[in-house]
Design a protein around this nucleic acid. Structure first.
Length: 419
RNA sequence: GGGGGAAUGUCCCGAGCGGCAAAGGGGGCGGACUGUAAAUCCGCUGGCUAUGCCUUCGUAGGUUCGAGUCCUACUUCCCCCA
């Protein structure tokens, strides 16, 4: 794989930027890409109201695919989500109701229009839902047409599920069918839309090549697999976890400001790699930024944060987030567009306990935690460390900007606005 | 079908001779040092109207002044024999 030098622009970008983990046939895929004839899909199950940055690598792959003249398909898993992918899972996830799936699907759809151009013409992206065909399958015909091509023996030896069997953990027949459905999706997309490539995370390798196999047995054109590596941070942690949980892509789940902050806090050693994976900046520019040493690397992190945020939330929101961060961290002022909560003026008039205020702002989970943080010196009001847990906030604490700034640690700030 | 073991702080692992808000890790959070980084060191890591009160150890009962700890039944999981 390392000595392969691609002729097509698409594969060249994939290699240069670090998107490639495994491919079923580099040369074959390269030939298709050179003719700009790739029609590639990535499937997204509707397990939450928004995708998180775990899905971002594959979204970027689709974006590059389109930018290099090929055709992307985003497949919503309206059908497969009703089953749940067992790959590399310790236990079955709980079944989602059809209503939940619909809500999630609606939330997830939004993100793709930001990096892909949709339409009907060649080279324009399609959005398809596998519920379209999966919900209409008839059991016996499906078993006879598709099921007969699957070897249970072989499926049980697949890496993605082997642990489940080895540990003798429950593996339901429902889950067992996921692989059949995903494989069938690939065939269906090949037939309906001329799809010839499925991309995804490295954990999807088994499911994807099984689909290629099914295609061959069911007489489609040649299908291909291309997977990207699972992204971890330089210090080995799974990427995309914050105190609040996952790093969501939708603004209603995680504000652009917080999203910007996530990227801003990237480890030094990851800056170059993340710039290549998560921005469209040219490689020479990235090389220059990644070469910055010592404190100067912070400039590169700001570029990363702003570019990555602009991709998901728009240039304007990204610049605003950058500016808020600059005022907050570099000037130590209370930028007015920090996250904030409204508190009735009447309540402030009678006095609001600091502990309760921090809980209300969502910075700490309980009064008890707030109390402990006071002892640790982790809470500040208008940049002054809180030392007295009995302290009461009143309207007099509002600064000239008209708000009270609560800080938890060095990085989390919330404004209390009297209304 | 028979025999033996296990379920602990709702993030995970895990100690716990009847006095336990319950050892120790990991993870997470805060503080110090830095550069909003990493590494390192220190602290915290049930709730509350808080020198006290309330709720936690698979579920439901029982013994006891007092139960995570003992007894009974049930649930789930693991191991051995058949």
């Amino acid at each position: 794989m390392t000595d392969f030098s691609p002729k097509s622009e698409f594969l060249r970008v994939m290699f240069e930027r670090g998107y490639v983990h495994q491919c079923s046939d580099f040369a074959g895929l390269d030939a298709l890409a050179a003719k700009r004839e790739i029609v590639a899909y990535v499937g997204y199950d509707c397990t939450a109201r928004s995708l998180h940055i775990g899905s971002l690598v594959s979204i970027m792959m689709l974006a590059w695919l389109q930018r290099t003249g090929n055709t992307p398909i985003t497949l919503m898993g309206g059908g497969t989500t009703q089953i749940g992918d067992p790959s590399f899972k310790d236990e079955a996830r709980k079944l989602l109701s059809l209503d939940e799936i619909e809500i999630n699907k609606a939330g997830i759809r939004e993100v793709f229009a930001k990096v892909l151009r949709f339409g009907e013409a060649p080279g324009e992206a399609r959005m398809i839902d596998n519920a379209e065909w999966l919900t209409r399958l008839l059991y016996l015909p499906f078993l006879r047409d598709v099921g007969r091509h699957f070897s249970v023996n072989r499926m049980m030896t697949m890496e993605s599920v082997r642990q489940r069997f080895e540990r003798e953990q429950e593996f339901s027949f429902l889950e067992f069918n996921y692989m059949l459905l995903q494989s069938y999706d690939f065939v269906e997309l090949a037939r309906r839309h001329g799809c010839n490539l499925q991309m995804g995370g490295s954990d999807q390798w088994g499911n994807i090549v099984t689909g290629i196999d099914l295609g061959r047995r069911m007489g489609t054109h040649q299908l291909y697999a291309l997977t990207c590596p699972l992204i971890t941070t330089a210090s080995g942690a799974k990427m995309g976890k914050t105190a609040q949980g996952a790093v969501w892509l939708n603004a209603d789940m995680l504000s652009p400001y917080e999203y910007w902050q996530f990227w801003r806090n990237t480890e030094d050693a990851d800056v170059g790699r993340f710039l290549r994976l998560f921005t469209f900046l040219p490689l020479d520019e990235i090389a220059r930024l990644a070469a910055l040493g010592g404190a100067e690397i912070n400039e590169a992190k700001k570029v990363l944060a702003t570019e990555a945020t602009a991709l998901m939330h728009g240039r304007e929101a990204a610049e605003a987030a950058a500016e808020t961060a600059r005022r907050t961290f570099e000037e130590g002022r209370a930028a007015s567009d920090l996250p904030g909560i409204d508190v009735p003026a009447a309540e402030l008039a009678t006095g609001l306990g600091v502990l309760a205020a921090f809980v209300r702002a969502g910075l700490v989970a309980s009064n008890g935690e707030a109390r402990r943080q006071v002892q640790a010196g982790g809470l500040r009001v208008n940049d002054r460390v809180v030392t007295d847990p009995a302290r009461v906030l009143t309207a007099a604490d509002a600064t000239e900007a008209g708000a009270i700034k609560l800080s938890f640690g060095k990085k989390k700030h919330v404004l209390i606005r009297p209304v």
